[in-house]
Structures are given as structure tokens and as C-alpha cells.
């Protein structure tokens, strides 16, 4: 959270001062997502924590072998986040509850208005009309702005390649499946059908219908329907989402509205990027210090005759 605010401050401060207002960007908050966008509804009341989805992702995306097998339950002892070697992970919550543990699959949520996309200097990200947020690792310079901007901590950083460090994340199996209308590998393998694939608009209706038909089973909220402007991955839960590690402090406004002006800087960034970057850094530092200094100054001024 802190890091992100820091970045926002830098971006906004940097843009206003360096460029003034730019026109480039989206009409923030008004974009409902592509009408034909697909999505996945995760019903955490169905998930049994078998981690088949993790295994399927590993094979589909040709990721390196995991450190321990996908049967190893010891991974549940810690909260995990997606990494460059595992685009999706399953975490366990509510272990001590009599109703039993609740498992939650985590991955990139494929936002309608992705903060990763707007924060990227080199336009590496694309939101496809099928709903996937994909990226071009050939142009990624490894600056990690998207990692800081993402409200869900989705992008992972590949430290292994020193020559070409890149960010990696779930792409909804775009290249191999989604493009052809097929469900992602995790959805296809899930034995419990905890993952339902379909048009995002239909999934929202399904989710509310499940809540209506079995109100004792769910809390009355579909996570991702509105959060940060809506996401292609949606969640249902049996207990408050805050108890399952979800960030329930996110607003319904896309994070894009805070950083969109930054897109206008892209052409310039390409030419004077290093200088600009250190400039923004300094600027932010100065802003922090400056505020303090200003207070003191004005106090001093007040005491002056």
C-alpha cells in the first residue's frame, strides 16, 4: 500500500510539474470492460485445495519444476503470492474454524482497467477484447512499475535472467487457449469446478444467482465485480473477504485514474528516461521533506514581526 501511494505521488507530482495536464488516457470509471470479455468465477466454497490448478498452470506455461511437488501440503503454512515461477498459487485460510479451511486461488485478476498497463513506461501491456491482460516481454525493461502499481500483487519478477530481467504473470492462457475461445488450463483441470469460465457479464449473474439460491453458503458480495473498476476474475466466499486475505480497502475506482496522465509521458520517457526517473525520485523526496520544511518555515514566518 505504502509503496503504491509513493508511486502515485511520484507519478502525479512528476506529471503535473513536468508536463502539465495531458489528454491521453481513458474516461476513468466509465469503461465497463469489453462486452465480450471472458472471465473466471472462483467459488471458494467449492475449492478443496488440491493444487491441481497450480500444476496445470506450471505445465501449460512451461514454468520451471516447483521446489516441492504439487501434493506438498506444507506450502499452506505460509501465505504465498504469485511469482515468475508460479503464476497462480492456492492459499489456505480459516484453518482453525469448525467449518473447516477455506482455500483461495490467487493469480492476476485481469482488471478491466489494469493499473499495470497504465503504469508501464514502454506500453508492454495489452488488455485484449477477450479480457486477458497480456504483456510483451520483448519490450519489458524490467523497471517493475507494474509490480508496484498492481493492487493485487500479481506480477512476479524473474531474477534468474540477469541479461533480460522481466516481469511475468498469468495471461489467462491467452496464446494457447483463450484466443481460441477455450478455458484456461486451471479451469479445465479443477476437479471441483470451483472455477467457472464464461463471459464476465454472465458470470456476474451466475454469482448473484448462487448467492440468492443458497444464501447460507455465501456472504452477499462478488469480489471483483466492482473493485478497482471490475476484474475478469470474480470471487465468491463463505466468510468475509477480509478473512481470506482479500484487500477489502480497495475503492471501486480504477487505479488508472490516479496514474493515467502518466501515459502521456511515454514518448518523452523513451528519450530522457534515466534523467527523468532520478528527477522524480528527488522530487518525491523533496516533497516529503519539503512539507516538513514548509510547516516550520511558515511557523517561523508567523512569529516574525
Amino acid at each position: 500500500m505504502k509503496r503504491r501511494n509513493f508511486l502515485k505521488a511520484c507519478l502525479i507530482g512528476g506529471t503535473t510539474i513536468a508536463l502539465g495536464k495531458t489528454n491521453k488516457g481513458y474516461a476513468s470509471g466509465s469503461f465497463e470492460g469489453y462486452p465480450e470479455a471472458m472471465g473466471v468465477l472462483v467459488d471458494t466454497t467449492r475449492c478443496i485445495g488440491c493444487r491441481s490448478c497450480e500444476a496445470a498452470c506450471n505445465k501449460e506455461q512451461k514454468l520451471p519444476e516447483p521446489d516441492t511437488s504439487f501434493d506438498d501440503p506444507s506450502v499452506f503454512e505460509h501465505d504465498r503470492r504469485p511469482t515468475a515461477k508460479a503464476y497462480t498459487v492456492v492459499n489456505r485460510y480459516q484453518k482453525e474454524q469448525p467449518s473447516g479451511p477455506v482455500y483461495r486461488k490467487v493469480q492476476c485478476n485481469h482488471c478491466n482497467e489494469p493499473a499495470c498497463l497504465t503504469s508501464c513506461f514502454v506500453n508492454a501491456y495489452t488488455k485484449t477484447q477477450e479480457g486477458a491482460v497480456i504483456y510483451n516481454s520483448k519490450v519489458c525493461v524490467g523497471c517493475r512499475n507494474c509490480m508496484i502499481a498492481c493492487p493485487f500483487n500479481a506480477p512476479g519478477y524473474d531474477y534468474d535472467s540477469a541479461t533480460n530481467p522481466v516481469v511475468k504473470k498469468c495471461i489467462l492462457c491467452y496464446d494457447t487457449r483463450l484466443k481460441y475461445g477455450r478455458p484456461p488450463a486451471c479451469v479445465e483441470i479443477c476437479p471441483q469446478e470451483a472455477l467457472t469460465f464464461g463471459h464476465r457479464a454472465d458470470l456476474i449473474k451466475l454469482a448473484h444467482e448462487r448467492i440468492r439460491a443458497t444464501p447460507d453458503r455465501y456472504v452477499d458480495h462478488v469480489y471483483g465485480e466492482k473493485e478497482v473498476g471490475g476484474t475478469s476474475w470474480l470471487y465468491l466466499a463463505p466468510v468475509g473477504f477480509d478473512k481470506l486475505g482479500f484487500d477489502t480497502t480497495l475503492s471501486n475506482d480504477p487505479i488508472i485514474s490516479n496514474v493515467k496522465d502518466f501515459l502521456g509521458m511515454v514518448p518523452m520517457v523513451l528519450s530522457i528516461w534515466p534523467a527523468l526517473f532520478s528527477g522524480i525520485h528527488l522530487l518525491c523526496k523533496n516533497q516529503e521533506h519539503g512539507e516538513h520544511g514548509h510547516d516550520t518555515d511558515s511557523n517561523q514566518e508567523d512569529t516574525k514581526p
Binding site: S52, A56, K59, D67, T68, D71, D72, V75, A86
Partner: peptide, 18 residues
């Protein structure tokens, strides 16, 4: 092979934390 069952016993999977 799909579940990488030969990998048991190593350090916890994806130990790389935030």
C-alpha cells in the same frame, strides 16, 4: 509427472515471499 511428485522433500515450494 504432472504433479511433479518426484520433487518431494525439498524446501517449501515457491518459498520466495513478498
Amino acid at each position: 509427472a504432472f504433479y511433479s511428485t518426484n520433487r518431494k522433500g525439498a524446501k517449501p515450494a515457491h518459498a520466495e515471499e513478498e
